[in-house]
Design a protein around this nucleic acid. Structure first.
Lengths: 152, 152
DNA sequence: ATTTATTAGGATAAAGTTGTCCTTTATTTT
DNA sequence: AAAATAAAGGACAACTTTATCCTAATAAAT
């Protein structure tokens, strides 16, 4: 019997958030504004939960929301370059990824490192630099096959 | 408002498990068998929850338990070399760390990778190799200051 | 043999994450 | 102006993880 199902790297909320943002970006590149129902259907995520996440991303200016008929979500072409994966993750999961010892040791720091300290730091820095260096545009256009990839 | 508090790398259960195992190893090197209450106190973890985790580690043969008075937990000196960090993690968190796309994309694989596929693979492989190459002995004796480090 | 100390294990509670539903607010269309 | 459409947001339900408590099983000490 195993106690846990730990997330591989991100929470579900964050996964949905990234997938949704990429979908919105792809559609915005086609000049289409998209509504939650469509997004959730296309990325295969729970609608209402996705709506919550989109609210957060909207507040964080990662995406832009428009109310009313013909409304929905969109992302300006310019923002696709400035928005990095790290901003999406931060808006949803916070910046926990960056802090603390992997073993939860409070005394562990650079001057008195635990045996795994440097390894943890390296791995986390790799993750961090990937998140900070990957733009939304790069991520969206890198999905050659496009939409099909967003379904899980 | 942020939805989540995602674990940095391991679950709480796994963190406690690693810290507890290291503590047991350190005490075993001194010839001392230790009881749950002491372990939990020294690694600053909840007693009953720690007991559950120790049960799992005991079943998985990572640690050895002895019932009754003078009983407690211990680890044979020989086992400290064969027990790797990966075994502790596996016993508690399972091997989720190793599977699936970081974005939760089901179509993502080596032949049709998502834009982050290789980066995810690299990071995860680094983590995996760290876990598989770090022995309990190395981990325990690497903690020069010993016990103080295990408190959080 | 009885008592005592300790792990094993079941039941359950608390907290956190994920997911749903319904009402309110904003905006467009008619 | 009224109706319709969509996001915003509050309340809450389900599930998972974390945590506690109590009893049973085991084994040493008396």
């Amino acid at each position: 019997m195993i106690l846990n199902e730990i997330p591989l790297m991100f929470s579900k909320a964050c996964e949905y958030g990234i997938r949704a943002t990429v979908y919105i970006a792809l559609q915005s590149l086609e000049g289409r504004r998209v509504i939650v129902n469509e997004i959730a259907k296309e990325i295969d995520s729970p609608i209402a939960f996705t709506a919550k996440i989109l609210q957060q991303l909207s507040k964080s200016k990662v995406i832009h929301s428009v109310k009313g008929p013909t409304g929905g979500f969109e992302i300006e072409r310019n923002n696709m370059n400035t928005v990095k994966l790290s901003m999406i993750v931060h808006a949803i999961d916070g910046d926990d990824i960056y802090v603390g010892c992997g073993l939860g040791l409070k005394e562990c720091n650079a001057s008195r490192p635990c045996p795994l300290h440097d390894k943890f730091i390296d791995i986390r820095n790799d993750l961090r630099s990937m998140l900070e260096n990957t733009s939304l545009y790069e991520l969206a256009t890198g999905l050659e096959v496009g939409l099909t990839y967003l379904k899980r």
